[in-house]
C-alpha cells in the first residue's frame, strides 16, 4: 500500500482519445500497486492538485489504466501533459466491489456515461475468473459517441461473453453511424424492460451520475432484486481518501473508507446518499 498522504511518483506512459473530453490514460507507477475494481487512487500533478479516479481495468503490477474526463482544473492540466511526464499516485482507497457476490449468480451491470469506467474493471475481473452465471451490461450515454469502449464491448457481446444492451438519450447522429449492435433511444433504465431476470439469483452493480441512482436503485428493488445485492459506487468530493478531511461524509459515514461501493440496503440508511 502506498503511503497515506505522500504519493509515489509515476509516469504518464500513454494516452488515447476516447471522445472530445474523455481520454484513456496509462500510468506507470514507480512502486507496484494493488487496487481491486471499485477502489480508487489519487492522481496528483505537483503544483496543480490531485483528484480521485478509479482504475478502468485490472491493475497489473505497476500499470494503471484510467478513463478520465476533462472536468475542471486538475483534469484539464492532466490533458495538457505530455507522455513521459511525472505525476504522483496515492492509494488505493476504499472498499471496492465484493466479487464473491457475483459467484454463481447472474450479474447485471448498469452504467451511465463515465460510470462505465469502474464497471469495466469489474467486468475484466469477472471475465477473468468466470465464476458468474449470465453477465449482462446495460450501458447508456448522452450520445452515441459517448458510449465509451463501445467497440470492445460489442466484441465481447459477439463472442457471447456478455449480453450487451445500449441506449442513448439523444438520437442525433445515430442514424448516420453504421451500427453493428442495436442501440435504443431513451434512458438506460428503460432497457430493463427487455430483460427477464431471475431476480433472486441476480447481483446488480450500478455506476453513474447521481440522477441515475435516484431512479435505478429502487427500480431494481421493485423488480425483485434483494436490496443487499444491488450495489452502487457513490461519488463525492474526495480529498484525503482516508477518513479524515470530512468532505465525503454522508449519513455520518466516510464514503471514501467504508465505500465508495455500498448496497442499496446500506444506502437506504445513509441520509442524503442519493441527493
Amino acid at each position: 500500500m502506498l503511503d497515506q498522504l505522500q504519493p509515489h511518483s509515476a509516469v504518464l506512459q500513454a494516452v488515447a482519445p476516447l471522445t472530445a473530453d474523455d481520454r484513456l490514460f496509462l500510468f506507470l507507477s514507480a512502486e507496484p500497486i494493488s487496487a481491486t475494481p471499485g477502489q480508487f487512487v489519487e492522481i496528483s500533478i505537483p503544483g496543480v492538485g490531485g483528484f480521485p479516479v478509479s482504475p478502468c481495468d485490472l491493475v497489473k503490477g505497476k500499470q494503471i489504466y484510467s478513463c478520465i474526463r476533462k472536468a475542471g482544473r486538475v483534469t484539464s492540466a492532466l490533458f495538457e501533459l505530455e507522455v513521459g511526464a511525472s505525476i504522483g499516485l496515492r492509494g488505493p482507497f476504499g472498499n471496492g466491489f465484493d466479487l464473491s457476490q457475483c459467484v454463481n449468480r447472474d450479474v447485471l451491470l448498469l452504467a451511465g456515461g463515465l460510470g462505465i469506467a469502474p464497471l469495466r474493471a469489474l467486468l475484466a475481473a469477472l471475465l477473468k475468473t468466470e465464476q458468474h452465471r449470465q453477465l449482462i451490461l446495460l450501458f447508456g450515454a448522452k450520445t452515441f459517441s459517448a458510449l465509451l469502449f463501445r467497440d470492445e464491448l460489442v466484441k465481447l457481446a459477439k463472442a457471447h461473453k456478455l449480453k450487451l444492451l445500449l441506449s442513448v438519450d439523444d438520437d442525433e447522429g445515430l442514424s448516420h453511424v453504421t451500427t453493428d449492435h442495436p442501440c435504443r433511444v431513451g434512458l438506460v433504465t428503460s432497457l430493463l424492460d427487455e430483460l427477464t431476470l431471475q431476480c433472486k439469483m441476480t447481483t446488480a452493480v450500478v455506476s453513474g451520475p447521481p440522477a441515475l441512482y435516484r431512479g435505478a436503485l429502487e427500480q431494481l428493488a421493485t423488480l425483485g432484486l434483494p436490496p443487499e445485492r444491488i450495489f452502487a459506487t457513490l461519488e463525492r468530493r474526495m480529498r484525503c481518501g482516508i477518513g479524515e478531511c470530512c468532505h465525503c461524509v454522508t449519513g455520518g459515514v466516510y464514503l471514501c473508507q467504508e465505500g465508495p461501493v455500498f448496497s442499496l440496503e446500506k444506502i437506504r440508511t445513509l441520509e442524503g446518499a442519493l441527493e
Binding site: 496528483s44 480529498r239 468532505h247
Partner: peptide, 20 residues
C-alpha cells in the same frame, strides 16, 4: 473540527508543495 483541504503551490525555484 478538523476538516481539511489540500492546496498546491509552486515556488519561484520550481519546487512544488502540497499544503493541508
Amino acid at each position: 473540527c478538523y476538516c481539511y483541504d489540500m492546496i498546491d503551490h509552486t515556488d519561484l525555484d520550481g519546487k512544488s508543495t502540497r499544503q493541508r
